[in-house]
Design a protein around this nucleic acid. Structure first.
Lengths: 164, 164
DNA sequence: TGCGAAAGATTCGTGCACAAACTATTATTT
DNA sequence: AAATAATAGTTTGTGCACGAATCTTTCGCA
């Protein structure tokens, strides 16, 4: 029943493959991080800060591809724990500057090792992987600036899917 | 500060590219689905059922790459709405058979059109995309059966990241 | 100079997503 | 046949993830 010849099947859809690959990766790293409290989104935040230095919430949002409403509570908990600092800018009181603490730098170094060794253990083909990364990056750039060509309308299908 | 030459930078990491691509795709389809109540995970469930016919919860879990604890509440709401049926098997009372209703078949046809036209509107290179799909599928197969090579230990870093 | 608009961040409500704990049924062992 | 184990789903608790609404600060402009 696995209709792989059908080009519209789930298995041939880019979005499904990205979706399920992301779920698989999240589970993989969840196991690797165990009960330490580390998660993949937190690793992304720590890495972004390590690479880019001090950032405002919206700059970090752009860098990590997450909305600020996702970051706000995440950053608050991480600051309470001590891996980063949240300081409202004095020259523009709207902005909040986020930066790694020393403890944050230690943490990201440790976590990065685990992430990289986890990847290495998968024995993926390096040229294929870098190609994957390149094409994914290009596709993401397109999709981030795009509007859907068509919107779903359930007018013909009473009742609409609200609250489903 | 965008250190693209560093092979360990976020932008060069497969997991980050999959992660942020998935976020971007989710946002894209959220816009396309508007206020209809449709979501990407629901589309995956409907499509899987259309392709594979009637499935148990665990079969569906495997097919869609989601855990049964994620599916249970999702399926319940979708059944209440009317797009699928949930019937406990008579020959093995532990199993619950999930199947599309006529309304579900109508819904998935509509949603699929929107999904495919949305993708088409992105103007991605077809050979690149099918390559992407193929490599992602292979990588996912590996990761799903894999154990992380190394686990994170915060013993050297007091206090541990618990509750962070 | 004052006032409406815009920008930056947070809060709120809803929906995944998972592990762990739990319930119910079936299979296995003794 | 009774105890035990294994299987299939559900429930529970926590953490993203988002849009919409809100709050504060800054900008623009008359």
């Amino acid at each position: 029943m696995n209709d792989q010849s059908n080009p519209n099947s789930l298995e041939q859809l880019l979005c499904f493959n990205v979706y399920s690959m992301n779920l698989a990766l999240s589970r993989f790293y969840k196991v690797a991080f165990g009960k330490t409290g580390m998660t993949y989104p937190k690793f992304v935040v720590l890495s972004a800060l390590e690479e880019a230095g001090s950032l405002t919430v919206s700059e970090l949002s752009k860098y990590a591809g997450m909305e600020s409403s996702t970051l706000s509570p995440l950053l608050k908990r991480m600051a309470d724990y001590g891996v980063l600092s949240r300081v409202r800018s004095s020259e523009d009181e709207r902005r909040v500057m986020i930066a790694l603490t020393d403890m944050g730098r230690e943490a990201v170094a440790l976590v990065r090792e685990v992430v990289l060794e986890g990847l290495k253990g998968l024995d993926l083909d390096p040229p294929q992987t870098s190609q994957l990364v390149r094409i994914l990056g290009e596709a993401r750039a397109r999709i981030e600036g795009a509007e859907p060509a068509r919107h779903l309308e359930f007018g013909r299908m009473p009742p609409p899917l609200l609250d489903c």
